[in-house]
Design a protein around this nucleic acid. Structure first.
Ligand SMILES: [Mn+2]
Ligand SMILES: [Mn+2]
Ligand SMILES: [Zn+2]
Ligand SMILES: [Zn+2]
Lengths: 144, 144
DNA sequence: TTAAAAATGCGAATGATTTGCAAATATACC
DNA sequence: GGTATATTTGCAAATCATTCGCATTTTTAA
């Protein structure tokens, strides 16, 4: 595995949340070209070292997010106000999916599950400050 | 509601599977402009008459798919070989999501769940004909 | 019917992602 | 090591779904 790919894998492994390709590029301090970041992410996913899912949100449009495959497979929540990801814990839909497989005859290779809404912080802030950050169009750029 | 929007809603309501914007446009027999189709789909979704999710697949890249909101909320399987959608039945993850809400303090407004893999037909065909259709690059264009 | 508001068509942006190609780097073999 | 071959990378140009601007047409309200 090349130096570049190792670095990108490490970025995913140390990230606390899913990262977009541009989020990854930012974390390389732009030492890698955008095309290389995309190609490396594809490589890592092919090798089974990373997973990805596409998510749509008003603020960021449609983007693909990547996570390292080192930890157990988990699912994520995306806050529509502050645009941060919240960990929803390890996957618990496998049993359901197995039932669906049995009922329909399909062979499931992978699944995508995520939820969106308002995170705990934003719910709380919203009570007092009527979503200040959203109106000001200012919010932390986590989950880039 | 305008004539155009009614027609598009009807297309979604009579579709057996999720449709992409271009799939919808094709079913209007291109009587509506692409931009209008997108704007109408946004409108229908805002009104709660339609739902959508983004799905990535090798063959079609990243696309957003729409379903009418008239029937009960369900989940879908996308075949990586023939690219057809298979109905996985009514949503059964609500209880899990409620638990996640309680555990994390987030307020879930919507969720996305779908699975990908090989459908029953393609599994069967694969046994004899080593995925003939895939190698020939020829497959039914359902789920456009 | 008429005026004002909202929706549509068409063509030109957008923005994430991909691709071609030459230069740089890694791998295989001596 | 040193060299030949296979891969990967950077940069710039191309894709492709989706969005936007604006003039024209349709809807809605009066
Ligand atoms: Mn977001
Ligand atoms: Mn497909
Ligand atoms: Zn939040
Ligand atoms: Zn199939």
């Amino acid at each position: 595995m090349t130096r570049t790919r190792k670095k990108i894998l490490e970025i995913l492994e140390t990230a606390e949340t899913p990262l977009s390709a541009l989020g990854v590029e930012a974390r390389t301090l732009s030492s890698c070209d955008t095309a290389t970041v995309y190609r490396s992410l594809h490589y890592l996913e092919e090798q089974g070292l990373a997973d990805s899912f596409v998510l749509f949100c008003r603020e960021h449009g449609t983007e693909r997010y990547y996570v390292a495959n080192s930890a157990k497979h988990r699912h994520w929540f995306h806050c529509e106000v502050c645009h941060r990801f919240v960990d929803l814990g390890e996957c618990r839909v496998e049993p359901l999916l197995s039932q669906m497989e049995a009922a329909t005859g399909v062979r499931i290779r992978s699944h995508t599950l995520y939820a969106t809404g308002t995170c705990a912080d934003c719910l709380h802030a919203g009570q007092q400050a009527a979503s200040r950050s959203h109106q000001e169009g200012e919010y932390p750029r986590q989950g880039e």
